[in-house]
Design a protein around this nucleic acid. Structure first.
Lengths: 126, 126, 126, 126
DNA sequence: GTGGTCTAGACCACT
DNA sequence: GTGGTCTAGACCACC
């Protein structure tokens, strides 16, 4: 997991995002066990309370379930829930595009610019 | 000006953004006078310290200049500086697109989705 | 037995409740033998310690008796003890009704609502 | 506010419940300011983190809104949200009634018993 | 061993 | 002053 303690986005949100990524990529499986609070705490060098906070949030979103004394599991609906969350990110991106338009940059120019950046990156990889 | 005191983005940043918008749209002209801290504070119902913070930031960025005892003016370079700032927003948008890709949504799908949203909105307007 | 390991009520309490239900329904008879810790543990897929805890509690309440080396039996007073426990549940229900009243819902409305729910359920069955 | 540190229900939930009660009773008004984290912390003799936790939960439920550096406000929808929550409590009561029925006490007997308790209490008051 | 709650005390950004 | 995050360390109940 990639955490940045100096980032403006809080650690517990970074953890949420990283765990979601692991579920999306199949490292953590739906119905499977999640790392325990204490384990993850040691592994990431982060206080257990912070892990707890991230886990509580994941549970609130229905992505994980906890069982007293037994541990914590990835919910069966986790995958679709996370995919839904990601879809919402498109809305947020669109909002930012609109703000740019308001600043006088045309929609098509923005799309063009994004494609250009993408091509550059693909070339670098190749 | 549209301010939302409950928004997660701080009020002083909202003010900066709104003032930049007024400069871009010509409501505030380069070389022209900016509203005084006290006036703007009353007009927006915002603490003077908050206005002050926004103005200080605008000054730091070279968008405004204060002249001792004469008030504060929009700098001559303001327009191009703001346009430059907006260009940087494309990078931020691109960052978010990359995050979405990491979640398994292809770049082309994202662009497609953005275009779809744009069309819908244009249709609504027409 | 219906156990839910994700439920907020601890498994050992769920087990107690289920065993009491079996005694009430006659599946387990007063004076009859209770399943062994090991058997029940295997049958329910639950840690033996958890079964043990449930049994200890049942014993403490006088519902079961263990005889050295001979196993565990349902006590003769089990039925009446359990019925008494159930009567106490009315007090708990009453407590919750009072809380609802404090929230501005009248006692009569609550009773009415409960009767309505009951009717609906009876209709569904019929 | 009535808090019991030794109660099995966590302090932060007790606080949530008490604040909801104050909103229902009009002590806290929709759109009005809520006590600050530090103030309430001192007033209740509870750690600020615990208050924070309660407030965060209230915010998540849409009952309150926080504004950076300004404080926290009761949302406009708070009243209806809380009333909705209370309605759900009826379902929980009904669930418990069903459990009692399963133990052989008839629905009508339960209602009768509740009414009897209510009468006794009303008499005591009068 | 597990999750959950709580305290004490610190730090940061915003108004 | 406000809210929000984080650490350290403790305690509890449950499996």
């Amino acid at each position: 997991m990639n955490l940045n303690k100096f980032d403006k986005v809080p650690i517990y949100e970074q953890i949420i995002y990283e765990i979601e990524k692991e579920i999306l990529s199949g490292i953590l499986k739906c119905g499977g066990k999640m790392p325990s609070v204490r384990n993850l705490s040691l592994q990431l060098g982060v206080n257990p309370n912070t892990i707890q906070k991230a886990y509580t949030e994941l549970e609130r979103m229905g992505i994980s379930i906890s069982a007293q004394g037994q541990g914590r599991y990835v919910s069966e609906e986790a995958l679709s829930l996370i995919r839904g969350k990601r879809m919402i990110m498109i809305d947020e991106i669109y909002e930012n595009v609109l703000k740019l338009e308001a600043a006088g940059i045309s929609f098509d120019d923005i799309i063009l610019e994004l494609k250009k950046k993408k091509e550059v990156e693909d070339d670098v990889k190749a």
